[in-house]
Write a protein that binds this DNA or RNA. Structure first.
Length: 835
RNA sequence: GCCGGCGUGGCGAAAUGGCAGACGCGACAGACUCAAAAUCUGUUUUACGCAAGUAAGUGUGGGUUCGAGUCCCUCCGCCGGCACCA
């Protein structure tokens, strides 16, 4: 059954989309082109991976928001860069290729076409002449070029350290792509089990930028929670390295009292609490620590070996399970505490990780919860060296700041001072130094996949060398079979002719991870067709100068990975002089997830997925846009509601009928009788200007839901008028146009305009029309509302108080009481405090 | 465990320390209609009351203030992140 439509969106929405495309309405002007004299505004969406499933209504939420801002900024006189593209390398297309033999290029092209169709139907104002695709050789040529710059700067290197390998996906994964789950470590993509394997890998030295990545967060207009996540991920700690001399008893097996010999080796630890060095009563090495074999005595060797083997077979989850009791083994070796010469035992335990600090710790069981647990279990000595402040209460193990005790020259010092003093002492004696430690690790940058950027690297034996830039792009070879080998050899190894060069050298067969293409795509949009350079400097300065991208909207799932990697590459490019700002994304907003109507996450398995195609067929693109912005704050998670979209659809119908009427045959026509040429009445004028002020202010703050509610208030007011002044209607359409651009364009034309509304100047609210001559003031007694009075807007405090005293309610509520104090807030309230 | 964020009607939500619940949905009533739908106009936090009105009310308990949804502290719940990081 065909439901009667409130307005013919199915006709005019596609027509306007076609109009915009044919007229290149949203083409942004590069420097030198007409329009580039305007100030720029760069509004960026996180570009999608074009999956086979297509879009659901959650995907375009951020796109609608950025589109709205883009349209608004154009009307405010900005030259707006609002582009879209495809993050099209990735695993699903490759897995499909493994199963079916379809080249990922074909799958990707098909998916992009579907995404493009869906996106176009929503009426976005993208400049499609700047469309990019990370799998296009003309694009990945420059991804490879940036890799070469990293390589030349010593920021790309080869590692043989154990890495996460996923047998199901047939590839290695970065630390960040591995999740700790109840079933053990799993791949973020697909939730497959992963394991450690020693494989030759490319790493990027992101740790060299740790300090700058941390420090520059401060100046960014990002959600504070997201900045905090990056800070935690980078994980900066200040402390000291301390060198311990290693002792080893001469083998005897008879117990104590045997001769000892001093070994050459130093055992270096990292600690954030050098002030507790006097309380270090034992040391712990990670089981994998290279010194373990040297410090272990013969008597202990079997036990140590068994422990190390047991640990090696543990998954990381078992190892990091906080609930389990700590285990460890004494090596038989000793170390000398440099500060007091005490000989302390060296243990190994899996609560110390090889990957952080030096893989060894000095244990201070009195003031570290973990050391405390361990010491209690193995009956190790505990020496208290920090006196807790009285406010700390009675705790078994005090880990906070206090006053140094039992610590020789530190005694009596507060913790921060004691830390500094100890570091000075260590540096004087040459047995330690100040050190800053980061949790951030280098970025594992190679994957054993087909559908990614090939590395522009060739090997000669164990030596690698870069391809010359003139040989870029290095194209992906064609393959008959895309599956990786079970041993972890990349699919590219099968392209024998491609891999083996005539001179005996061989190509790198790994490819880059999906993050590579998205690390710099925002730059390419500025100058998408430049064959000679990654980006033209003048164009870069125009679009990226000053603050970089003015507004970046995308999902919070990219809080640490994409956003950290892209910042890293950007800083490298900044150091190379390719870009002119140290940070790419000035303002960042995370749109909240849209849940299903049942308040659960939209997913096929719940059967609650809403497809935008269906919504558009039923209510039109403007309704979809308007509703997604009306549901609630952009950043907030919120459920879809069919009734809700009917509400905004009804609102658009009301707008339509302000000027249109339907004839007997169901055709809509302009209704001249509904529009008056008269000047708006003062109250109408005030309503219009109040809406202008509210909508403008709200868009600036990205508070689209309240902006829409202001538009609804205005439309409700105009609906009540027998005929609507043309001037008021035109202002309404201008305000509506970023939200519901199709209807705004259509009615703008109906009202006789022959140019697109997209570049009409945004209306200005006249403050003189907003001031009211009289205001209603709240009358309170003891803070409780007891009445209202109307006074001139400029009434003095005295006049307001006097007016309030005239009220019958005043006598009633103050009877038998004394007025002790009167508080007047001009234009707001008057409050009598009585007792 | 640690670090963020959030708790407001039947529902989605508003509210520079100053009238809690704008706007929308739903519900109820009226107009139009033979009738319905659609549309238009009202009402709609709860309790008591015919009403005027009064009282209570923003997760819990306290505090600051003339005045707290908003600021501070305690606890509870939900969401996100990190997780033996020395």
């Amino acid at each position: 059954m065909q439901v009667r439509k409130q307005f013919p969106f199915a006709t005019f929405e596609p027509a306007w989309q076609q109009f915009w495309a044919e007229h290149s309405t949203f083409r942004a002007a590069n420097p030198g082109e007409p329009g580039s004299e305007k100030p720029k505004f760069y509004a960026l969406d996180m570009f999608p991976y074009p999956s086979g499933a297509g879009l659901h209504v959650g995907h375009p939420e951020g796109y609608i928001a950025s589109d709205l801002v883009s349209r608004y900024k154009r009307m405010r006189g900005f030259n707006v860069l609002h582009p879209m593209g495809w993050d099209a390398f990735g695993l699903p297309a490759e897995q499909y290729a493994v199963q079916t033999g379809t080249h990922p290029r074909e799958t990707t092209a098909k998916n992009i076409a579907n995404f493009r169709r869906q996106i176009d139907a929503i009426g976005f104002s993208y400049d499609w002449s700047r469309e990019i695709n990370t799998t296009d050789p003309a694009y990945y040529k420059w991804t490879q070029w940036i890799f070469l710059q990293l390589y030349h700067r010593g920021l790309a290197y080869v590692s043989h350290a154990p890495v996460w390998y996923c047998p199901a996906l047939g590839t290695v994964l970065a630390n960040e792509e591995v999740l700790t789950t109840d079933e053990g470590p799993r791949s973020e993509r697909g939730n497959h089990p992963v394991e450690r394997r020693p494989l030759r890998q490319w790493m990027l030295r992101i740790t060299a930028y740790a300090d700058r990545l941390l420090a520059d967060l401060d100046g960014l207009d990002w959600p504070e929670s997201l900045k905090e996540m990056q800070r935690n991920w980078i994980g900066r700690s200040e402390g000291a390295e301390v060198d311990f001399t290693v002792l080893k008893p001469v083998e005897s097996g008879t117990g104590n009292g045997e001769a000892i010999r001093v070994m050459d080796d130093k055992l270096t630890v990292f600690t954030t609490r050098p002030d507790t060095l006097f309380g270090a009563t034992y040391m712990v090495l990670a089981p994998e620590h290279p010194l373990v074999e040297k410090v272990t005595i013969a008597d202990r060797f079997a036990e140590v070996k068994a422990y190390r083997e047991a640990v090696a077979n543990k998954s990381d989850l078992e190892r990091t399970d906080l609930a389990k009791t700590k285990t460890g083994v004494f090596t038989g070796g000793y170390a000398v505490n440099p500060v007091n010469g005490a000989e302390i035992e060296i243990w190994i335990a899996d609560y110390v990780m090889m990957g952080y600090g030096t893989g060894a710790i000095m244990a201070v069981p009195a003031h570290d919860e973990r050391d405390h647990q361990f010491a209690r279990k193995y009956h190790l000595k505990v020496i208290e060296v920090v006196k807790a402040p009285a406010s700390a209460g009675d705790v078994a193990c005090f880990a906070g700041n206090g006053t140094a005790i039992n610590s020789g020259f530190l005694d009596g010092m507060p913790t921060p001072e004691a830390k500094a003093r100890m570091i000075d002492w260590l540096e004087e004696k040459g047995v330690g130094k100040r050190r800053v430690q980061y949790k951030l690790r280098d970025w594992l940058f190679s994957r054993q996949r087909y559908w990614g950027e090939p590395f522009p690297i060739v090997w000669q034996g164990e030596d690698h060398e870069p391809l010359p830039e003139t040989e870029l792009p290095l194209l992906l070879p064609e393959l008959a079979d895309y599956a990786p080998s079970p041993e972890g050899h990349a699919p590219l190894a099968k392209a024998v002719d491609w891999v083996n060069l005539p001179d005996g050298r061989v190509r790198e067969t790994n490819t880059m991870p999906q993050w590579a293409g998205s690390c710099w795509y925002y730059l390419r949009y500025c100058d998408p067709h430049n064959a000679a350079r990654v980006i033209d400097p003048a164009i870069e300065r125009y679009w990226m100068g000053d603050r970089g991208i003015d507004l970046y909207i995308g999902g919070a799932e990219h809080a640490v990975l994409h956003l950290l990697y892209a910042r890293f590459w950007h800083k490298v490019l900044f150091d190379l002089g390719v870009v002119s700002t140290p940070e790419p994304f000035h303002k960042l907003v995370n749109q909240g997830m849209i849940l299903g109507e049942d308040h659960r996450k939209m997913s096929k398995s719940w059967g609650n997925v809403i497809n935008p195609d269906d919504v558009i067929a039923e209510y039109g693109a403007d309704s979809l846009r308007l509703f997604e912005m009306f549901m609630g704050p952009l950043e907030q998670m919120k459920p879809w509601s069919t009734k809700g979209i009917e509400g905004v659809y009804g609102f658009l119908g009301r707008v339509w009928r302000l000027v249109m009427e339907e004839d007997q045959e169901g055709r809509w026509h302009f209704a001249p009788a509904k529009v008056s040429a008269d000047e708006p009445a003062p109250e109408t004028l005030r309503a219009v200007h109040a809406a202008i002020a509210k909508v403008t202010d709200d868009i600036d703050k990205l508070k689209f839901n309240t902006a829409i509610s202001a538009l609804m208030v205005l439309v409700n007011d105009l609906t009540k008028l027998p005929a609507r002044p043309r001037a008021a209607l035109e202002k309404l359409l201008l305000l509506l146009s970023p939200f519901a651009p199709h209807m705004a364009e259509e009615l703008w034309r109906v009202l006789g305009h022959d140019q697109t509304i997209a570049y009409e100047p945004w209306p200005e609210a006249d403050p003189r029309l907003l001031v009211q001559s009289e205001v209603e003031i709240v009358f309170q007694v003891n803070g409780k509302l007891r009445g209202k009075i109307v006074v001139p807007a400029d009434a003095t405090n005295e006049a307001i108080e006097a007016a309030a005293r005239e009220l019958p309610a005043f006598a009633e509520w103050t009877a038998g009481k004394t007025v002790r104090k009167v508080i007047v807030v001009p234009r707001k309230l008057v409050n009598f405090v009585c007792g």
